[in-house]
Computed example of a mutant assay.
Amino acid sequence: MNVKRISWGLLVLFVGFILLFTNLGYINFNWSAVFSLWPVLIILIGIGYLLPEKTESNYIMVFVTLGVLALFAYQGLTVPKNNGLLGRIFNDHDRNFEWDSSGSDHGTSTRASKNFKSPYDTAIEFAELSIEGGVISYRIGEPTDQLFEADAASDFSNFSLKEVRSGSKADLDFRMSDEDSKRSGEDSNDNSVIMHLNTNPIWDISLEIGAGTANFDLSAYKLEKLTIEGGVASVKARLGMPQSAKSEVDFEGGLAEFELEIPKEAACRIIAESALSSKNFDGFSKQSDGSYVLGNFDAAEKRYTIHIESGLSSVRVSQY
């Protein structure tokens, strides 16, 4: 009996059945609650190496694996959506898009706030914004007359904004310091950033977070490209109409929830490469090459191409 193969086989079957029943609407499974228990998998692997190579050990390992899967199932089925790892960190992420661009702080924390501004110049036609941080909540809200503006609230984190302008292009780098990024998991409820952009330039935005949430309402902005890389992350984004035939969205996540809204009038193609993910592409037609298409994609002069690469994730693309 190859107990390691059996244990991993049980795990894959468990994930497969959960994704199937979720897609069919039979259950409402909270993956973010399960993510908080990922160290249990390391413990399970350790137990497998420690047990002696005996027949009794094989049965013990299978029994322990079934117990771990039962724990995962209980956690995912009973913990409300606003709890679990991501829910405890940021409790404003439900399954529906409810955009709050006011930038108000709903908590009672004594967080220190710092404002960052980059002045707008009418010569700037293209802007590239790179965002990087640890366990943190990012939000893009209503437009500003500045080129870029951010309100960062934290008990300890040190953010920085660097800018390089060349001709009609501006490159903005907004990030948390490396040391603070490592510490951010200590009290992640007290780390949030509200950002505002100017509506005139065409934007190329990239976000890199290890764990956290992002709520990007980009419907008022001219977006050429959106790139998101996240480990354990919950990301919501709403886009406006595409700017060209090269407009694209790239999402890469490990244990992630990704929700994207695009206008009903926008032509779009989704290319998804995912291992064990729950996918919901409402209104899209699956093509022979495995991609998903919305509207007359090939003939459209302006369109979105969405690339999704994920591990154990929940992915949803819908129209508004």
Rank of each mutant, 00 (worst) to 15 (best):
L312W: 02
L20E: 10
G290P: 07
S160T: 15
Q287I: 06
Q243W: 01
S313K: 03
G46V: 07
E309R: 12
A256L: 08
S160C: 06
G295R: 00
I202P: 00
D180Q: 07
Y320V: 15
K169H: 10
G240Q: 05
P39L: 06
L255A: 15
F21D: 09
K236F: 12
P143H: 04
G254M: 02
F159I: 04
N115C: 06
S118R: 04
A272Y: 06
I89T: 06
Y59E: 03
E125W: 02
K302Y: 04
K4M: 08
F17I: 15
Y120N: 03
T110F: 08
I89P: 00
T213N: 11
A275T: 14
V64Q: 01
T78D: 09
I124E: 02
F258S: 01
T227I: 13
Y292F: 15
A300H: 05
S166T: 13
F97D: 02
V317R: 00
N296D: 15
D155Y: 10
S177F: 03
V79N: 11
L197M: 09
F159H: 09
S154R: 01
G185C: 01
Y304C: 03
M195N: 06
Y59P: 04
K279F: 09
S101M: 11
T65M: 10
I45T: 12
L207E: 03
G9L: 05
F126T: 12
A170V: 13
A123E: 10
L20P: 08
G48A: 08
F90S: 13
S314R: 06
S288W: 08
K246W: 05
M1V: 12
F29H: 01
Q319R: 15
L11T: 11
G253Y: 02
A211T: 11
K4H: 11
Y304T: 04
F251L: 07
L69D: 02
E248W: 01
A256V: 11
P52R: 10
K246R: 11
S234K: 13
G103N: 04
K225R: 15
Y74M: 07
D145G: 02
V40H: 00
H307M: 09
E132W: 08
P119F: 07
K222R: 14
S285F: 08
